[in-house]
């Protein structure tokens, strides 16, 4: 398959319900603010632009380059979108990209979609914005600011988002923090280099061909101090929390259990079933399997019956 996204789209089943819900709430807030800010801009040209650029980012994620040994680098695009469109439109564009990936292509889950949008769309964009703005300030409008800013924004957006994924998996009790976070961070520190190089390559091309687009993007960098600090806060919080969490995984586990982040452990399920359901069968495991098979047969029977009668009706 041509289309192979980053190993950053969390499928369903990996995040606990509590973590999913918290991330959905954060995502909804960020998207709502972005929608208001973009609507307030009153530039009607931007609706088709955001739609088409979301498609371009999706398609851009197909463009790969060989790294070594059969692996290849891909684009995520949060930094590129932020630099060209400003933070608000970029959040909406990334939301659309990640949303379509989940809804249509099953890259990432639907319940986990809040988390995936938050990681790639919100964290990716805000961190890119903070880094890019900071480098631009230092560069004072010189050309190197675009490239250094673009590279650092792209690298850090991937790296910080990966830390967030690791932390979320650990909070969900799926993977211990001292493994999940360093593993995600390590892999994505490398992937981030690819992201940085592709982003710079794209910026060089666009700067040479249509400098006005970069300058227009510059004008959209009007997130203001609050967005800048939000990005900074996220980056710092994750950069500090992650090593702490991974050096003290039991602590995180404790937080998770205490706060109810971990889903309830399994109840006394098998102890009860055999006696109630199949008095004659003593072996619990066998009883479980039989109960399951009966369930499957019933549900299947109904489904097959409906499908069959419908088919007959159609062909009749």
């Amino acid at each position: 398959m041509l289309y192979a996204p980053l190993p950053m789209h969390i499928p369903d089943g990996f995040l606990s319900v509590a973590v999913s819900v918290v991330l959905w709430v954060l995502t909804v807030i960020a998207v709502a603010i972005s929608l208001r800010r973009v609507s307030a801009d009153l530039d009607e040209r931007r609706v088709p632009m955001m739609g088409v650029l979301a498609a371009a980012i999706f398609a851009g994620q197909m463009l790969n380059f060989t790294v070594a040994g059969g692996t290849s680098g891909h684009l995520m695009g949060a930094a590129l979108a932020t630099i060209l469109l400003g933070p608000w439109a970029a959040i909406l564009v990334m939301t659309t990209v990640v949303g379509v990936q989940a809804l249509v292509f099953q890259d990432g889950g639907l319940l986990a979609l809040g988390g995936n949008i938050f990681n790639m769309g919100v964290i990716g964009v805000l961190v890119s914005y903070t880094v890019y703005r900071a480098v631009q300030k230092v560069a004072g409008g010189q050309k190197w600011g675009l490239y250094v800013g673009g590279f650092s924004a792209a690298w850090l957006s991937i790296f910080i988002a990966a830390l967030a994924v690791g932390l979320q998996l650990a909070l969900s009790g799926i993977s211990p923090a001292n493994i999940a976070i360093p593993a995600m961070a390590g892999i994505h520190a490398l992937i981030g280099v690819g992201e940085g190089l592709i982003t710079v390559g794209a910026l060089v091309f666009i700067y040479a061909s249509r400098r006005d687009l970069i300058e227009a993007g510059e004008k959209q960098q009007t997130g203001g101090a609050i967005v800048w600090f939000a990005g900074l806060a996220i980056a710092i919080a994750l950069a500090i929390a992650s090593p702490l969490a991974s050096s003290n995984p039991d602590g995180l586990e404790w937080v998770a259990e205490e706060k109810g982040f971990l889903d309830a452990a399994q109840g006394p399920l098998y102890e009860i079933i055999p006696d109630y359901v199949f008095p004659g069968v003593s072996n619990e495991a066998v009883a479980t399997i039989i109960a399951g098979i009966i369930g499957v047969v019933i549900v299947f029977g109904v489904a097959a019956g409906v499908a069959y009668s419908r088919k007959k009706r159609l062909t009749a």
Binding site: L63, F65, L75, G194, L197, I198, G201, A202, F205, S209
Partner: peptide, 9 residues
Amino acid sequence: ARIAGGMAG
């Protein structure tokens, strides 16, 4: 990587 970037651009 830069070529891929040019293609993305």
